[in-house]
Simulated assay, not measured.
Amino acid sequence: MAKKLASTTKPVRVAIVANMIKMAASASGAADLFRQVLNQAQFPDTAIDLTLQLNVSRTVDQGQINRLCRWATTQMQLLAVQIGPDGVATPVVTAVEHGLALMADVNTAPTFDLNDANLAFDLLAAEVAEIISSGYARLTAA
């Protein structure tokens, strides 16, 4: 859909965002995953609620792209809501899941040459795929 729209209008900026979660058995398991994935970053062993976010730009033939990535331990709760006879909603936590979340937002900088927006989408999609497969190392590679 985005490529179709880009072929009929002149976009100013283009972005692809991916959100992923790798499940863990517990909060400490999620923290362990965080440390494994980001093994180059140093965090105290007792740290909880870990988050690392950075934006690393990269120069390509058409200009600059921004690669904003955020890794974070996360907790998800499944809630069941019961409405009482008095009309009051009472939420009950029925399940708690833990995991490591990665949000990757790869976008064109304002100076990026968007004469071929379809090419830009392909470039950004390839970059997101590399971040997903290589993680933090992709951002720190030359």
Rank of each mutant, 00 (worst) to 15 (best):
A80H: 15
I65H: 05
F34L: 13
I131N: 04
D32T: 15
S7W: 03
V88I: 10
V92A: 12
A2H: 04
Q77I: 14
I16K: 08
M76V: 11
V88A: 12
R13W: 09
N118E: 06
S133M: 10
D49H: 09
A142S: 14
T46W: 05
G63H: 10
V96R: 00
R138C: 03
Q77L: 04
G29I: 00
T94N: 12
T51C: 07
I65V: 13
T90V: 12
S26E: 09
S7N: 10
E97M: 13
E130L: 07
S7Y: 07
L78G: 15
A137H: 00
F121I: 05
D122W: 02
Q75V: 12
A30G: 11
F121D: 00
Y136E: 07
T9G: 00
R35F: 00
A18S: 13
A137N: 06
V96L: 06
G29Q: 03
R13H: 02
A125R: 11
I21H: 14
D113Y: 05
V92G: 01
R138P: 04
A41H: 04
A41Y: 00
T140R: 15
M23H: 12
D49G: 05
A101C: 06
A80D: 10
T46I: 02
S133I: 03
A95C: 05
A30M: 08
F43D: 03
A24E: 05
R58D: 05
Q53E: 14
D61M: 01
M76F: 10
R13Y: 08
L52S: 07
A104L: 07
T51Q: 12
K4P: 01
Q64D: 12
V60T: 14
T8N: 11
I21N: 15
V93K: 15
V81K: 01
A72T: 12
G87T: 10
S7A: 03
A126V: 04
C69M: 08
A24F: 06
L114N: 04
V14F: 08
R13V: 04
K22G: 07
T140W: 03
A15S: 11
I132R: 14
A117V: 09
Q36R: 08
R70N: 09
L78S: 11
D113T: 04
A72G: 09
Q82L: 06
M23P: 06
A126T: 07
S26F: 06
Q40M: 08
W71P: 03
A141D: 07
R35E: 08
A27Q: 13
T46E: 14
T8S: 04
G87H: 09
A141E: 13
Q36C: 02
D122T: 09
G99M: 05
D116W: 12
A31E: 12
F34P: 05
C69Q: 09
N55T: 06
T90G: 12
A104V: 01
Q36W: 00
D122G: 09
W71Y: 13
V88T: 08
A30T: 13
